[in-house]
């Protein structure tokens, strides 16, 4: 097998080969999320129509990740930029990619209102429980007791609240046509399916689609491979329930998602 063929198999077709290896830290979850997204785009055959927007924070490193028209926006502002693109040219498929700080803190008003307006866009939010790019500060998703640079003695829920339940909030305020799910990099095939369904939901014009992805940040967590895996597979799901939370026209869709993933 030629090198080119090997690369082709290892990478989604819509990835930009010339910008690989990517710029994320070793062990970072972003590469996996973007791989699952890449395969979903390939399967749907939408490379000619998909427009990718990335936020500020670690997600900004994906600005040249795909062979897709891509805009790197400001912190928290990817949702309105993609909304504007989609409103101005509904034939495009708008993907807004961000972290938990961008989506749940500085850009939460945009997420709330885009969901409430049922914008026909797909928002993918990577939850690694802290601000990665700025050096590991507390995020809305930080776990109780979790040590970060701004909670050096552990997050105290009495003072700073409990982890933000993003998909649950989006499900509560979005319309019947919305698709809302929480995937994890610990279950790649399931994640790829969630992302594909989220894009299909937009393509069908059903409504807003939102996927949160539980991800890893070994750099700021200061965890080795085993501890990192334990965090994403066992610890985080205690606070963040994995599965489809809202699926248009399929009330029982959440069943079995964990098992068959």
């Amino acid at each position: 097998m030629s090198l080119a063929q090997t690369i082709e198999l290892a990478m989604p077709r819509c990835w930009r080969v010339d910008t690989k290896p990517h710029k994320f830290c070793p062990g970072c979850g972003h590469g996996l999320v973007l791989k699952a997204l890449g395969y979903a785009i390939d399967e749907l055959g939408i490379q000619d129509r998909a427009v990718f927007g990335c936020d500020i924070g670690c997600s900004l490193l994906s600005w040249d990740f795909f062979n897709l028209d891509t805009i790197q926006t400001h912190h928290g502002r990817t949702t309105p930029v993609i909304t504007g693109i989609k409103r101005a040219n509904p034939k495009l498929i708008g993907i807004a990619y961000m972290g938990d700080g961008g989506g749940y803190a500085i850009g939460s008003q945009h997420l709330v209102n885009a969901a409430a307006r049922d914008e026909k866009i797909t928002v993918i939010l990577v939850n690694n429980t802290q601000y990665g790019m700025t050096g590991g500060q507390m995020a809305p998703t930080t776990l109780p007791g979790q040590k970060t640079e701004t909670t050096p003695y552990g997050r105290d829920p009495e003072k700073t609240g409990f982890p933000f339940q993003g998909p649950e909030m989006v499900a509560a305020i979005s319309r019947a046509g919305a698709y809302v799910a929480r995937g994890t990099v610990a279950n790649f095939r399931q994640l790829q399916r969630f992302l594909k369904r989220a894009l299909e939901n937009q393509m069908a014009g059903n409504g807003f689609s939102f996927v949160e992805v539980i991800s890893a940040c070994p750099t700021n967590w200061r965890t080795n491979a085993e501890e990192t895996w334990n965090m994403i597979e066992h610890v985080l799901p205690q606070y963040f329930k994995v599965g489809e939370i809202k699926v248009p026209g399929a009330p029982a869709a959440q069943e079995g998602e964990k098992k068959d993933g």
Binding site: V51, I71, T73, H74, R77, P80, V81, I82, T83, G84, I85, K86, R87, A88, N89, L92, Q109, H110, V112, N113
Partner: peptide, 23 residues
């Protein structure tokens, strides 16, 4: 077309999105 947004940040950034789409 017209869209009433949630604030001026959103109004500005959706405008930029509109421009990117060539409108």
């Amino acid at each position: 077309d017209f869209l009433q947004t949630e604030d001026e940040l959103s109004a500005g950034f959706t405008t930029l999105g509109g421009v990117l789409a060539g409108r």
